[in-house]
Design a protein around this nucleic acid. Structure first.
Length: 599
RNA sequence: UGCCCGAUGGUGUAAUGGUAGCACGAACGACUCUGACUCGUUCUGUCUAGGUUCGAGUCCUAGUCGGGCAGCCA
């Protein structure tokens, strides 16, 4: 059967659920009931801040969960005590919760604080398992791979007993030499054929701290001639005499990523382990470890997708760190950075980030996404939700000569023109007002609709004015514009319908607020800063312009949660860090599209 | 010169052997008390060469181009 879609319904039809190769795979597994439940995970290492690239992974993993009545675990992949810190688990947790709030909160999986995988029996076999709880359950916390160190160690002993792992005494340098090269097979370690008993003994002594860092490793016994170098007896455990920020000082052997990740997924009952393309060669190892342990429950599988690469931005932790350290930006949450904390501070709604990253789709093709797509998503969200206000960024004084000094003319301004039933507020027109200096030109270019000598414009929500005189000081600088207000062109007055080509924004010079406004622009001058020899050479020196603006008085009541459109200028929000009552600081989230200045 | 992966307008993505569509972008126009929004028109595409088929973006073969893989990082 087929039903012809009608155009009249198109606007109200909700957008189709996302469709991509990962969702296709999951749908098939749901259909064949391969897993008791769809469980995904977002597994950051707590060694930096999350950025918009992570948002793509978060939205994919949480999206998979919410579309399949599943759950997505936030798990810290913290197997390297040398790099990780509690500071990052806090910021990452806050960022994830902010991003999914109101969209997939109900899919976020935490676990009871302090719990570790429990040993149980599954189909008559011993099995470790750790179930999730909702994040708002009492004493809930995210998952930590470091909570699995006991289970992981037990699995390692099992691999040794099965003759699938051995303790190797090769030094780091020797290990590298024995590994060979992608086009050249490796050589077997001389320690590869130790007895199970000897391996068990040595691994126990490694764990007990008998050997110094780097002296020995635990390795999987796979195939030193494999064309996939990750299968050439990969390291499972290394010795690190270092305390761990979460696991404490119990351990001096720590598992490596490939060993810990697949088993962490299994322990949590993860069904689909979705990661980025650089892990494709690791997939064979992911499967090998799980398949060689004789595990009783259905095994998770790894699927890979291409990372997000937006133009005019840099995403790697290393590069962002350099921008922070060299003080190109003020910190990890600088509003010019693509970090989630930076974007949030800039005033960008989480919903806009979600709309963007979901909209770009999920493929296995390395692509570059035009940042304009992101900017469009931000404007679309804000246009629908931001309250309209009047503000002047770079003021020039204008005197309405036919108004008395103390006289005020009450005007009604619309708060939400996109709404079905717009609301209004009162603003005062006075003899002296500020207008934007860009809205006046003594020598106007062609097709200039704004204020010019002898010309007329409308003051938004007020009346049409005519420019009579330009007053300059001794140096020739303009000090004020003297105009006549045509009060009968106000809304509701006889000539309200009079048309002029230009409408400009303004604020009363006697009833206004001063505020610091930070005008942000892109951080780089080239589309692909990462492709430069040194991205520091292409930093945009004008990425931040700080002005003292004049705001309409109602903005004194603004809170950091508010989003505003300063009409004809852009979208603005209070800086949640630096703004104080009485000393307001606004960030420009994004400008309005400007098809005029482009000419 | 080993192995793996990929290739659809300027960009991103859809089409699962049967009309190459959507979005961003750009240009032009309409509307406008935001040069915004909205609306309309237009623009540009299946890497190449063979093959299978009634029919190929889709399947096969070869090539070209691009990405990835040799951390005791994740």
């Amino acid at each position: 059967m087929s039903v012809e879609p009608t155009d009249s319904n198109a606007a109200t039809t909700p957008p189709a659920a996302p469709s991509d190769f990962v969702r296709d795979i999951v749908a098939q597994h749901v259909a064949e009931q391969r897993y008791p439940r769809i469980v995904t995970r977002f597994p950051p290492e707590p060694n930096g801040y999350l950025h918009i690239g992570h948002a793509k992974s978060i939205c994919l993993n949480f999206g998979l969960a919410r579309e399949n009545n599943g759950v997505c675990h936030l798990r810290f992949d913290d197997t390297n005590p040398a790099k990780e810190d509690i500071e990052f688990v806090e910021s990452i947790t806050a960022d994830v919760r902010w991003l999914v709030a109101g969209w997939a909160d109900h899919c976020l999986g935490f676990k009871p604080k302090g719990t570790h995988p429990a040993l149980a029996t599954h189909n008559g076999q011993p099995d470790f398992y750790l179930a999730s709880v909702p994040p708002d359950a009492p004493h809930a916390e995210p998952f930590f791979a470091s909570d699995y160190f006991d289970a992981l160690h037990a699995y390692a002993v099992e691999l040794i007993k099965r003759g699938r792992a051995y303790v190797c005494d090769l030094s780091p340098k020797e290990t590298e030499e024995y590994r060979g090269a992608p086009d050249k097979p490796g050589r077997e370690s001389p320690y590869r054929h130790r007895s199970v008993a000897e391996n068990l003994d040595l691994f126990a002594r490694m764990t007990a701290g008998e050997f110094p860092d780097g002296a020995r490793t635990l390795r999987a016994k796979i195939d030193m001639a494999s064309p996939n170098v990750w299968l050439r007896d990969p390291l499972l455990y290394r010795i690190r005499h270092l305390p761990h920020y979460h696991a404490g000082d119990k351990w001096c052997v720590y598992p490596l990523y490939d060993y810990a990740h697949c088993l962490s997924d299994y322990l949590e009952g993860v069904s689909h382990s979705v990661c980025s393309l650089e892990f494709v060669p690791h997939r064979a190892l992911y499967d090998w470890i799980l398949e060689n342990l004789g595990l009783p429950r259905p095994l998770p599988r790894q699927y890979e997708f291409a990372k997000l690469v937006p133009t005019y931005t840099l995403l790697s932790k290393r590069n962002i760190l350099r921008l922070v350290q060299e003080k190109v930006v003020a910190g990890w949450d600088d509003p010019r950075l693509p970090t989630l904390s930076g974007l949030r501070r800039r005033g960008i709604p989480a919903s806009a980030i979600r709309k963007f990253v979901i909209g770009v789709g999920v493929t296995t093709f390395n692509s570059v996404t035009d940042i304009a797509v992101f900017e469009h998503a931000v404007r679309e969200e804000l246009n629908a939700s931001a309250a309209r206000r009047l503000a002047v960024l770079k003021p020039i004084k204008l005197v309405l000569t036919n108004l008395a000094a103390g006289e005020t003319v009450e005007c009604l301004a619309t708060n939400d023109p996109q709404s079905e039933q717009p609301t209004t507020r009162k603003i005062a027109l006075t003899r002296e007002v500020f207008i934007e200096s860009d809205d006046f030109a003594e020598v106007p270019p062609p097709k200039y609709f704004r204020l010019k000598p002898g010309g007329e414009v409308r003051l938004k929500y007020a009346c049409i004015i005519k420019l009579d005189e330009i007053v300059k000081d001794a140096t020739g600088a303009i000090t004020e514009l003297r105009c006549t207000a045509q009060l009968d062109t106000r809304s509701g007055q006889p000539n309200a319908d009079k048309k002029v080509k230009g409408t400009i924004h303004w604020v009363s010079a006697t009833q206004c607020l001063d505020a610091e406004v930070r005008l942000y622009d892109r951080l780089f001058n080239v589309a692909e800063p990462g492709a430069e020899d040194d991205f520091m050479k292409v930093v945009n020196p004008h990425s931040l312009d700080v002005v003292t603006a004049k705001l309409e008085p109602s903005l004194a009541a603004a809170t950091p949660a508010d989003r505003f459109q300063f009409e004809r200028l852009g979208y603005f929000a209070l800086d949640p860090v630096d703004s104080q009552p009485g000393k307001l600081v606004f960030n420009r989230t994004i400008s309005l599209k400007d098809t005029w200045s482009k000419r």
